[in-house]
Design a protein around this nucleic acid. Sequence first.
RNA 1: UCCGGAAUAGCUCAGCGGUAGAGCGGGUGGCUGUUAACCACUAGGUCGGGGGUUCGAAUCCCUCUUCCGGAGCCA
Length: 431
Amino acid sequence: MSYIFVKDIKEHLGQEVTLKGWVRNIRHSGKLLFIIFRDGTGDIQSVAFKPELGEEAFEAAKKLTLESSVILHGIPKAHQKLENQFELAIQSLEVVQYAEDYPISKKEHGPDFLLSNRHLWLRSSKQWAVLRIRHTVYHAICEYLNNNAFIRFDSPILTPNACEGTTTLFELDYFDEGKAYLSQSGQLYLETGIMSFGRVYDFGPVFRAERSKTRKHLTEFWMMDAEAAYVEHAENMQIQEEMIRFVIRSVLAKCDQELDILERDKEALKRADAPFMRMTHYEVVEYLRTKGSDLDHESDLGAADEVMLTEGSDTPIFVEKWPKAIKAFYMKRDPENPDVVLGSDLIAPEGFGEIIGGSQREDDHDLLLSRMQAEKMPIEDYQWFLDLRKYGSVPHSGFGVGLERLVTWMSGIHHIRETIPFPRMIYRIYP
RNA sequence: UCCGGAAUAGCUCAGCGGUAGAGCGGGUGGCUGUUAACCACUAGGUCGGGGGUUCGAAUCCCUCUUCCGGAGCCA
C-alpha cells in the first residue's frame, strides 16, 4: 500500500493518506488521544477521537508506548492551535509493534547514559537534526569541490607508515608484511593524485590514537583532504574560504528546521558568510599578547588563544605563515622568510576552534629530502612520495577539513561526540 | 599523561553520622485539544567494589573501578 512522508504532508491536505513510522510521544485526555508521530523525515501530531475510531481501536491506540512502531491512516489538516503546522486526523491505525519500556525518557539524561544508549539516542530530535546537518555539510563540501574541477580520489585506510610522524597511530598486524597502521590522513597519497588529475580530494574516516579527552576530539573522525596542482598558498586559502562559505549557505538553505530544533543562532551563521580575515602567526601572537596572553612566537595556539583570537569576529580567521618548527615536514618555506612555512589554519568563530589545516607543499626534491632526514623519517618508505618531486614537480597546495568540527560549528552544539552516529573516544567504543 | 569533579530507584538528582527521599519513567484509574499534558493511587534500593573509624556509615578515612569536565596533542 502506498504511503507518504511527513515532509510532504502539506501537499496532501484533506486527502486520505498513510504514514509509516514511530511514536515519539503520546498523550491522552478522555476520548482524545495525541500521538507525536515521526517517520524519519519529520514529526507530526496525530489526533484520534474515540467516537470516530471506535472503542476497540481507541483502546489499542491508548496502549501505544514511546517508540512503538505504527502505521497511521488519516487526513492531514491545519493544526487547530499552531499556525503553519499540520496535524493528522487519525481514521485508523495499525500497530506494528508495541515497544517495551523505552530507556530514554522525556526528562534529562546524563552523557554517559545517552552514549551507552547511542543506538536509541539517535532517534531524539536533536540528534536527528545534528546528523541531518552532517549529511548536508558532507554533500555541500563534495558539491563545491566537484564544481571546481576536483576529482574524488580515495586514499587507503590501511597504510604502512605515518603521514605525520608525531601523532600516535592505531597499529595492527598485516599478514606477513609486518605492521600496518590506520591512516591518520590521506594527504601524502593525494599528492600523487594531482599529478594525474590536477585536483583531487578524499573523504573518509581517519584515526588518531592520541589520548585526547576534550570536546573537540574523536579517535575516529571523517576528514576531507583536498589537493591541487599549480595552486599556491594564497589561492589555497581562497579555495578554502569559498568552500566554507558555500557550506554555510547550503546549511542555511537546507537545514532551517534542523537549526531551529538545535536553537542555533542563524544570524551568526549568516554573518560568517563574509570575507575571512588573514593574519600571520606573528601578527596573531602580537595581537593576543596585547589581550593578555603569554604566547610566544615559537608556539602553537592553545584552546584559549583560539577563542580569544576570534572574539569579536563574525567570520573564521586564517592564521598563516607558521614557525617551521611546529609544523609538518612537507610544508613549503616562505621564500620571503625561511623561518616560517606557507601553512594556514582556519579558526572558526564563536569559540569553535580550528576546522581546517592546510599548506603549500614543498615541491623541491632536495629540500624535502633534507627536511625528512632532519625528522629522522625512514626515507626508503617514502621513496614514492619523493618520486613526485622528480617527475614533473609543480607548486601545489592542499588542506584537510575535519567534518565533525565543521558540523559542530554549523550546529552550534557543545560537544563533537554528537556529530557522528557512533563516536569513538578514548574511553568509549560501545555501541 | 596531568589537574579538577562525580558515582544513591530504570533515568535525573536531593540527603552529608541516628528508621533511604523527590521528580520523571513503569502499573492502575480519571479527563474532548494535549504540547517534556495534568490529577489520584501504586510498585520499585546490597546508596559503584573492597577495607577501616564509630554504639551506629549513603554520610568520615584509605584503596580500587568507572564516568564527567578541562589541559596538552590535533581536524
